[in-house]
Simulated assay, not measured.
Amino acid sequence: MRLVTVAHGTRSPAGNAVAVSITAAAGARLGLPAVAAYVELAEPLLSTVAASPMPSVVVPLLLSTGHHVRHDVGAGRALGPDPLLARAQVSRLLAAGAQPRQPVVMVAAGSQDPLALRDLLVATTHLAQAWGGPVRLATLGGLGERPADVLRPGDAVSPYLLAPGHFHDRCRDAAAGHVVADVIGPHPAVVDLVVERTIGLLAARRSA
């Protein structure tokens, strides 16, 4: 048995390295061989990894429900929303210099899928609970309001993005003049979440 994670993929080597780091750490914790795969823009592609006969448990590193989760990965659940992701976001906000309970705008890539917007609203609630202050949602595309329409003077920004790349660059540009946290990245809480999901999938497989 091996762990296969699935990230979107980006042309940014640093962005793809985030998935590799999370996957390696989770695999080491679980005592399983582990490989990070991608939907597009990076190698190895999920289609290539899935062609192996080795039994695998697949955990998406995609933060919201959407086309990639349902059609490309075929998984029933995205990585987010989850309180563990919110814990990582709080850590990134504090590291960037945001003040506790300062108003925060969570900026996500966005999607045309209503289920993705639902997930983002839940993620916003998780972050507000973890942060202890008001959090509003903005999206860079798809459904939802844009950062320019949501951001107010004095807001901090929490990118709801796993890795650096195109959307992270757009987020920083849209939030110029505000405190902008780093992407969620390979935070220990994210590794905890991948481990938790893997254990749950393995248990479900054994009981099936």
Rank of each mutant, 00 (worst) to 15 (best):
L117C: 09
R197Q: 12
A26W: 01
A17D: 09
V157H: 02
R2P: 05
P13H: 09
P13F: 03
G9N: 07
S111C: 10
D155Q: 13
R101N: 08
G133Q: 15
P186K: 06
I184N: 00
A24T: 14
D149C: 12
T124Q: 12
S91C: 07
A181G: 13
D113C: 14
T198V: 13
P13S: 08
P103M: 11
A163S: 14
N16E: 07
T139W: 05
P55N: 09
S207P: 05
A24M: 05
L63P: 00
V35P: 01
G141W: 07
G133S: 13
A148H: 06
V195L: 02
S207D: 06
A138I: 12
R11Y: 05
V4L: 06
A19D: 07
M54G: 08
T139D: 03
L41S: 07
G142E: 06
A181C: 11
R146N: 08
Q99D: 05
V190K: 09
H8N: 06
G31D: 15
S21V: 09
H168Q: 13
L115V: 08
A108S: 10
M54E: 13
G165Y: 04
E196Y: 11
H68E: 15
E145G: 04
G15P: 02
A42M: 13
R205G: 08
H8L: 03
R87V: 15
A109F: 01
R87W: 13
P159H: 10
E145S: 09
P81V: 07
H126V: 03
V49E: 04
T65L: 05
Y38M: 05
A19G: 13
S111N: 12
S64H: 03
G144L: 04
G165D: 08
Q112C: 06
V49N: 02
L162P: 00
V73G: 00
P55L: 02
V150K: 06
A19W: 01
G80T: 12
A26D: 01
E43Q: 15
A116C: 06
G74I: 10
R206M: 11
H178K: 05
A24K: 06
F167V: 08
L30D: 03
A75F: 01
R118D: 08
L93A: 05
L3M: 09
P33E: 15
L162Q: 03
V57I: 09
L140I: 04
L193C: 07
L140C: 04
S91D: 15
